[in-house]
Structure formats: structure tokens, C-alpha cells
Design a protein around this nucleic acid. Sequence first.
DNA 1: CGCAAAATATACCAATTGGTATATTTTTAT
DNA 2: ATAAAAATATACCAATTGGTATATTTTGCG
Lengths: 198, 198
Amino acid sequence: MLTKAEQTTEFIIQTVAPIFNKNGYAATSLSDITKATGLTKGAIYGNFRNKEELAVAAFRMTEKNMLKRIADHQSLSESPIEQLFLVTDFYRNYYNFTQEIGGCPVINISVDSKYQNDILFQHVQFSINKIQNNLCKLIDSGKESGQIKLSIDSMRYAKRLYTMITGAIFMTHTMEDNSYLLDTMDQIDQMILTELKL
Amino acid sequence: MLTKAEQTTEFIIQTVAPIFNKNGYAATSLSDITKATGLTKGAIYGNFRNKEELAVAAFRMTEKNMLKRIADHQSLSESPIEQLFLVTDFYRNYYNFTQEIGGCPVINISVDSKYQNDILFQHVQFSINKIQNNLCKLIDSGKESGQIKLSIDSMRYAKRLYTMITGAIFMTHTMEDNSYLLDTMDQIDQMILTELKL
DNA sequence: CGCAAAATATACCAATTGGTATATTTTTAT
DNA sequence: ATAAAAATATACCAATTGGTATATTTTGCG
């Protein structure tokens, strides 16, 4: 059971995460935070050492949730090839999902923190590595199970896929047009069939 | 001949543009601006109505420069197919070029302005449309000159290419690894040869 | 219940924010 | 060279910033 204080900590993070994600670190003020949570500075600073620590906690939570969502969706199949299709399937719904939380946290926090906050920026790099490694493992186990060509450079291909995915996310968010994501996911599906599959 | 005042206006924009591009609108303070320019607030506000107007002017200048660079490089050939290769060639050097100005202005300002500044955000969308239209026209004239398959949906393919380019730019900047850009440009070159070319 | 401990609110701080009115300097055309 | 105009500097403003010390309330345990 969660103590009242732990609940408050969690509540602050949940409430504040989309605000940081939308507006960025500098543009999110303590008064934005107190207003959104309905708490006072005393409560905020009782739960977090400073604004930066709160921002980091918020990103970590958002990121953990997102990685879990991918993992959950992916686990709908056991077959590596099918799991790759489940990944593109996941990103087909990404615009919907990320609109609620104010955009893609990986892209937003990367841009926001790059010249401002090393800790936050390193967390973004870490998240990207996780996603890439996940894709790489999928391709690798596809090779092992004889579904995917052995000639494929797994990591290189994983990076290529995630680069395309990220580009599509950025484009649909800035052009406010989901077709970028949908088209790119179709394109990736084609690549899986024609370039990866044996 | 430029009057002294016009020179100052230009100087302010040039000096301030990379700062806004790096740090974003909110994180760039008037004192950052006066410090960087060596001018006082009086001079700044004599040349610009407010911080927002200056930020817009800075982005427009950066964007104009960038579009001109692409156009100049592209005009090294007359052949549409060759021009497409010149585009990927341009982006192969993009990391170098954008590091000086603090990252890709399209990506940075898009993320920064999305929930903060409509005018700025619309300028980003406008720039993207320009680049996409340019790519689309290249493909179209490639069709006309019999170099490119008529079955290609020009705009759709232009969007697809720019999505990949943008993804690659984002990835090299956040992973601080130019190979994302290089690999993606190789990938696009391959696509031009195998999917576009007759 | 009652009490100690933990959590939250209040009231404050110096520093900085974007912006402005006015004083001063610099530019430009005569 | 000079005077009018334009540009820049100075000195100020109220509001807000992130943060803190302390007072008050709430929580959970015996």
C-alpha cells in the first residue's frame, strides 16, 4: 500500500509530466506547477529537491510508460516478424496517444534539454538506445528462427527503422497530419516484407 | 548602401538567431540578448517591438539562409535525378553546418514553438512545405524529362523523403552521431536508383 | 484517543524577467 | 559645421522567477 506522501509524489509527477513535455523545462514555471497540482511550493519542494529533479522524474515516468506500452503491444505475438509488424502497428496509433501527453517525449525533451540540461538529455539518449536495442534483438531472433535474412546488419537496420519512425513522428506533429506516420509505417512494413523476410 | 541602423538590425538578428535556435524562446532572456550583442535594451527595443518579433526575425533569417543553401547546391546540375542526389549530398554535410547554428532550426523551433508561439510555428510549417514542394517539383520534372517513373506519386514520395531526412537529422543531433545522416542519405540514394529511376 | 513525525501551507527572499519613459549620443542631410 | 532626426543608453518599473525558513496541518502508529 502506498502511503499518502508517496501518492502525492506520484500525483505531482503525473500532473506535471505533460506540462514539461509540452512547454519544456524553462517555460514551465513553479507557479504553473502549483496551479496544475493545486498544491503549494511547500508540498512540491517537500517531495522534490528542485525543479530539475521534478522534470527528470516526470520524463522518466513518461518514458517508462511508453516503453511498457510498446513492450506490451509487442508481446501480442511470439514471432519476431510478427512483432516487427506490431511495432509499426503501435506507432500507427502514436499520434493519438502522444497528443494527450503533449507530443513525443523523446523528441520534445531531446530538443529542449540539448543545450540546457545534461541529465535530461542523457536520459533521452538512454531511451533511444533501449528502443533501438529492442528492434535489434527482434531482428536477431528473426535470424535465429530462420525468418530473416542472415545478411542483414541488425543494429544498422534497427537504427534505420527508428530513424524513419522518429522522422514520421516529428512530421505528423509539426504538420498536424497523421498521414506521415501512417505512410511511413506502410513503408516500413514493405521493407520488412521485401528486405528482411526470407 | 545599408544605413547604420539597418546594419544594427541585421547584426542583432545574426547574433541572436543561434541563441534562440539553441535555447528556445523562453530560455532566451533579454539579458542573454544584450550580453551577446553588447547592446542595451534601448537598442534592442528600438529595432524590434518585442522579444517575439525578434525571435520571428531570427528564425526567418536562418530559414532563408538554409533554403538558399539548398537551392544553390541543387543548381549545380540541371538534371532532376542529379539534383535529387545533390539534395542528399547537401544533407550529408548538414550536421557540420547546423552545429554552428545550434541545431536544425526546423526541428528546434517546431518543438519549441508548438505550444508557445503560433506565429513561429506557422513559419516552420511554411518552411517545411517549401522544401517538400521543391522535392515534389524535382520528381515531377524528372517525370517530364523521362528520367523518373510516371507511376510515382510525386508529393507522397517527396513527403516520404523529407520525413526520412528529418528523422536522420534528429537522430544525429540527439545521438551526436553523424552516421544516422550518412546512412539515411545512402538509403535515399538507393531508393532513387531502384524506385524512382526508369 | 493522543502524540510524534511527516507533509503541506504560508510568508518571505533576492534576483531576474520583459518592457518603457526619458535622457543622451550618433547619424545623416544640408 | 550644424541642426534635426534617428538610434542608443540609462534608469527605472511591476511582476515573476526559483527557492527557503518557519508555521501549521495531516498522517499513521501505539
